[in-house]
Write a protein that binds this DNA or RNA. Sequence first.
DNA 1: TTAAATTTTTAGGTAAATCTAAAAATTTTT
DNA 2: AAAAATTTTTAGATTTACCTAAAAATTTAA
Lengths: 220, 220
Amino acid sequence: MQSYTEENYLKTIYHLAERTTNVQTNAIAEQMQTKPASVTDMIKKLADKGLVDYIKYQGVTLTETGKNTAIDIVRKHRLWEVFLVDKLNFKWDEVHDVAEELEHIRSVELIERLDEFLGFPKADPHGDPIPDKNGRFAKTQFIKLIELKVGDSGTITGVSQHSSAFLKHLEKLGLTLGKQIQVSDVTDFDGSVEIRLSDKQVNISREVAKHILISSNGKN
Amino acid sequence: MQSYTEENYLKTIYHLAERTTNVQTNAIAEQMQTKPASVTDMIKKLADKGLVDYIKYQGVTLTETGKNTAIDIVRKHRLWEVFLVDKLNFKWDEVHDVAEELEHIRSVELIERLDEFLGFPKADPHGDPIPDKNGRFAKTQFIKLIELKVGDSGTITGVSQHSSAFLKHLEKLGLTLGKQIQVSDVTDFDGSVEIRLSDKQVNISREVAKHILISSNGKN
DNA sequence: TTAAATTTTTAGGTAAATCTAAAAATTTTT
DNA sequence: AAAAATTTTTAGATTTACCTAAAAATTTAA
């Protein structure tokens, strides 16, 4: 059984490991809003418990056990987000902090029943996949909107940026999950993208387009 | 903002204060499964924060602020219990420990929306009243089953014992909240009580009868 | 391939919440 | 109203998760 803090470290390491193999001390410290010295302390503790592999100065990787623990926390976080949005009518930009607390509630029974109550959702309100109780993720096939060519179309199925500002912006533009879109133009000048929705056209910056994930429905 | 531990102390003191005015160090220690010395330390801290009034060797009482904080935790605990039973199909004897964790989640928005989602319940699955968001309790008029005379009838509206063993026992006998009952006999020998339900008769010990709360529907 | 910059670790400390053992105050009993 | 029993507090440690400052290792640049 881990403390909340240990769980948060494991989760952070898990997410950082999606980009790099060996996760660096400084990266963890920045993510967790703490100091590198504190991270070193905790890493040693997690290594003693067999949750991470650690070689001095070489960063950490999660062990099988550590990874399973992290995935379980991710599962809980995402299920609670679905609960907050689907049942309590929170907006997708309001759920992160509360889920950050709820994810640490320890009861296997609770999460299984919650999962069932929610209808075994496969993705959270931002389109991130929810692992099943065995830690397995459904395969997802995303492509970044920025990579689409003029004329390509697809469905918005996720975002790779969870900041409230970004999510509110998308909401305002009508770019929410499930929306059908087609790229109608890409501006030479700044790379901004013009998008056709069922009922309107909107223009988004390159930066925004980078963080919208599309599941293409056939095409090119 | 209090730590989980501080919240638990406040809640414990609140419940103990329902029976005695000045709450004793030892009583808190026993309830919280800790040592009196630890309680003294924490009491000092709570006193410094203005959450309890404390005179050495004289026990503690909650201040207005302390009491409000405690009531807020009680509110959260009971709302989560309703959620667990009504929405996730937990039994009334299974919810306590999980609610004990959930009660510490800090989000006013969450609790208000949960309250609404649950239909603003007035009582938890054990019949305990749920304070509203201003900390006010609906007036309740309970009488212990043991105090009823032969012939008296009423509705089971609460229990004053939350142990799993007790609750499972009641469940098995069919003595659940909302059931109409009438006292058909009281045994001289051991004070056990015979109860008529709509479809059957059951016999319960004095000890059990002490912990069943009845709202009388007119009578005697 | 040294020097400089960066990253990481070590050493030594702090605050929160706990503990044990012993001292002090209060309450109960005789 | 002493003596005995009980309750409560103090004193001094421990553990967890932090911190700062300085040392050590690694990486990057000159």
